[in-house]
Amino acid sequence: MIALSQLTKKFGGRGAVNDLTLAVPRGEMFGLLGHNGAGKSTAIGMMLGQVWPTRGEVRVCGHDVTTHRAQALQKVGAIFEAPAFYDYLSGWRNLEILSHYTAPTSAARIREVVDWVGLTGRELSPVKTYSHGMRARLALAQALLPQPEMLILDEPGNGLDPEGIAEMRHTIARLHRELGLTILLSSHQLAEVEQLCTRIAVLNQGQKVFEGLIADVKATRGRVQLKTPDFAAATALLRQRGIITDVADGKYISLGEGQTIAEATKLLVGANFSVEGIWQHEQTLEDFYLGLIKRKPEGEN
């Protein structure tokens, strides 16, 4: 659905996105991660034809966005951080206005979408009277009106309270499940991405530093957490016997090739160490992400 090829954007002399190649397959729930200024919004801007690439190609739904923007965006909906509306007009009028930039939209279709997002009864009130959550739902409604096949969500949970974030998360999952939409989700909220997405890409200072499946990230052979009153002595013994290769943070051990948790436990118990717990530490997306971001890009001092 989205294919970025060696995409580069420079503002003045500063590179916002550098040589980004990315593919979002149809039906995927794809997470785009990165710190503030990593280039996520610029990359999304280029996907929507709002920002012109300095170099490279952006294809959406099979069409080059730079040369065939109208065809590329015909079946795309988008939601941005802090969605903006004509506050002095009603929600309904806003939907009418925005949907007509894509195609003529019937009142029945607007009613259907208003109902789907749960704004029925408030659609005729001015948007200035809407709560933050209602604005988020209106943003979702405007994105759904053209019956998209793909949604691009740029920080949709920003500014929402925990309840609003949970609601947004459920809605995104529902969109994927019930409507079968391909979703590109750009977010800071790693827990949200971890729960929703099947595949992620991580940007750091305009460069892609990772692209892969969340399942692979989690399955990466991680460390083993060992809980014992005398961690130093216990790990010294394990290291001496060649069961572990490394220790970290006063609680993690790395097993040597072919070694198992059972072997380590047996040795420690046999040597009268009190083992309060020993288990495989499953790597969270946060661990993985922070590990990636801490690695400085090549060429940086």
Partner: peptide, 18 residues
Amino acid sequence: EDGTLRMILSRPISRFRL
């Protein structure tokens, strides 16, 4: 300034037409 332009330009309308 208000951000509504970004909402509009996520749609397939050409800038000239707008």
